[in-house]
Design a protein around this nucleic acid. Sequence first.
DNA 1: TTGTACGCGTTATCAG
DNA 2: CTGATAACGCGTACAA
Lengths: 349, 349
Amino acid sequence: MKSGRRGANRVTLADVARHAGVSAITVSRVVNQFEGVTDALRAKVEASIQALGYIPNRSASNLASSRSRVIGVLIPSLSNVVFNEVLSGIYKVAGPAGYQVLLADTHYSPLEEERSLRTILGQNPEGLIITGGDQTDAARQLLASVDLPIVQIMERLDTPLDMNVGFSHFEAAKAVVETLLSRHYRRIGFLGARMDPRSCQRLEGYREVLQQHGLLDERRVVTTPQPSSVGRGGELFRSLMGQCGGDLDAVFCCNDDLALGVLFACQKMHLSVPEQIGVCGFNDIEMAAQVMPGLSSVQVGRYEMGERAMKMIFARLNGELLESPYVDTGFKVVQRGSTRSGSTATLEE
Amino acid sequence: MKSGRRGANRVTLADVARHAGVSAITVSRVVNQFEGVTDALRAKVEASIQALGYIPNRSASNLASSRSRVIGVLIPSLSNVVFNEVLSGIYKVAGPAGYQVLLADTHYSPLEEERSLRTILGQNPEGLIITGGDQTDAARQLLASVDLPIVQIMERLDTPLDMNVGFSHFEAAKAVVETLLSRHYRRIGFLGARMDPRSCQRLEGYREVLQQHGLLDERRVVTTPQPSSVGRGGELFRSLMGQCGGDLDAVFCCNDDLALGVLFACQKMHLSVPEQIGVCGFNDIEMAAQVMPGLSSVQVGRYEMGERAMKMIFARLNGELLESPYVDTGFKVVQRGSTRSGSTATLEE
DNA sequence: TTGTACGCGTTATCAG
DNA sequence: CTGATAACGCGTACAA
């Protein structure tokens, strides 16, 4: 019985050292894979670790070394395939590097983001991945004060806090609308849900192009701050049809969920896609390629964004020089059956 | 300059104490919301915390108190809506309680699970949520040795390690097949991907019922260890049609992704659903209710499982008495357009 | 290559 | 109600 403290007398480095007949620091060096420990000693120590079932206490390690092996990740939503794939990319790189991910779902709220940020900073993360650029002032101050590698992901930012990996939602939306125009759609509507900053940027891209062509009509724009879903897509489409009196030949949806909802709604309303109504989504989730007709969409490097962000953090932690702290992962408009095919099948960025 | 150590001279409890002219422990008590601190002192301390932008160091706290405020969560896949909703339930309870979630994706591998478990245990979690019951022996030993509240989720287990929240996949599959039989389907196939333990249990439920009715034909069973996806559903359906020579009037799919793939494949092959082919999925994801025709499926309490599991852990941590450490969250077969409607619209568990 | 002494920031304990 | 002191388990710095 070592003490009356709460922690059950867990096996410690010292226990292993005693068992192996070496000093604690030697065990530490074995655990942390340091060079320069005799094979003989190493073997003895490893045997003792096995025998005692030793698991290093990260809190103690962290406290002593200021190295937590934790990366904080803040995303707006857990229940969104888009972020799941970004996360997969992050975990794929973090895991093998021996890093843990501390994940927070901010529910698209800068205030929740700020709260989560505080909590995460309490764990002394060595790096931070956060979504987008609309942090609260307090959060921004916090981030400025901590001196960690920070990557803002999902969108290209004009003034990143530190590093940035993403693409321009504005340009992507413009490309979509230009594609639709090239397919001879003229009365193009916009459907948006949630309307987070990136959705707003898409809306702006949509407006920009139609404005240029003298084809913008705000009666063809329907948005809601409510969460996005397939069902919501159907609802919004019905609103849109009402609002513009059916004077519509295509719909650009803020994301694929909404677009799928529109597709199904069209089937129910016996509107032929892509003839009477062209439909284009955003994100190019797997379903887009599988549904009938195929859903035109915008392919973005979700997995890649997570992967790159994580790699950039590690590069910084290892003192490597980055080519550039800003990475544009681009996008690609993918033409499928839900929009009329034109002369070219795919428009590259 | 306090030291030459790596950690940038972060604001500590001692700094706050000095600033407020009190002792460190008083600051600690304020931070941890202890009763019995004068309002005057509390106010002074809180002001200092604000002024200095103090963020408590959880590693130190953890080390000193053996309380990490961390819950470890091990799930087989991040990129699966099913687990996302379970996670949402977990976060929803954990966050407000001031707990962090340490998440690991085991990629359906018991070995990866064991590895992640070790890593997570290094962070001294106060509780653990793990998926299913097929842990490695080493993992089981580890879990037995740590004395934490542990909840195994997603399925009902015969011999849980500690607590258990889930439902019987075997019974759910039986209910599906019985429903299909009551709709006068007789040549019912099974499509499965990934074939993790729960998928296997569904397959067994399917076999059990058809066996009883003398209708089991293994040529109508197609499975693959590969990951599940909508596209895979189409592929497997084509294999199935080949394997049974088209002698098939319904398909029970291991999950909704596969089922959606079958639905789309049927559209492409001009097979009418539900007349020529009935289709039933599993999990009842949102898309099931939205697709045309609606996909019959099995509704399970995903969000609820996460929520309950988390609450049970907190109950244990607070020394509350649990009604039962085993919770069956049940299931419900949902009848939609992809299967012929019978006399009753829904079969309850 | 291995070991010793000390400190990381916080909380438990017990005294005032 | 408040404070002094000693851990918590490990890694850094330096010595051997």
